[in-house]
């Protein structure tokens, strides 16, 4: 069950900033703690940059979610880029194909409560993360 779905394109550097700002706004609205807001916005920044740099651009979808116990935020990053051939390797700390630190994907996973990757070489990548209020 969810409501308030907001979508943003992720095509430029400036879009990555907009994703951060939207996630921050929604994180405050669902009353995540300050540390959890910071973790989620940081994870969103890493994943939005991945969508831009590795996926060749795509879209971010931010929604408020709740189950019977808690409220939370779900963010979906989707691109139609080259996909990830070796997911285990891509999730290894320090592995990078883009000249970065190799912490974006593995680090983002540590910062959220739920993390799901759907990827296929040649078809693109969709990453879904959820952070719940404690």
């Amino acid at each position: 069950m969810n409501d308030d779905v907001q979508r943003l394109p992720v095509v430029t550097d400036q879009d990555v900033v907009r994703v951060r700002q939207l996630v921050r706004t929604v994180a405050v609205a669902v009353k995540l703690s300050l540390v959890d807001q910071t973790k989620l916005v940081t994870a969103a920044s890493e994943l939005a940059r991945n969508t831009l740099v590795y996926g060749g651009g795509g879209e971010a979808e931010v929604s408020r979610v709740h189950n019977d116990r808690r409220a939370g935020i779900r963010i979906v990053f989707a691109d139609q880029g080259p996909g990830i051939a070796d997911l285990d390797l891509a999730l290894t700390d320090g592995y990078t194909t883009g000249g970065g630190l190799g912490l974006g994907l593995s680090g983002a996973r540590r910062l959220v409560d739920e993390f799901e990757i759907d990827t296929e070489p040649g078809k693109g990548t969709t990453i879904t993360v959820v952070k719940w209020c404690r």
Binding site: Q37, T38, G107, L111
Partner: peptide
């Protein structure tokens, strides 16, 4: 550096 930023950075692996 803000405390929440420090906590997040370390968890991120940086």
């Amino acid at each position: 550096m803000r405390p929440a930023v420090a906590i997040t950075l370390v968890e991120l692996g940086l």
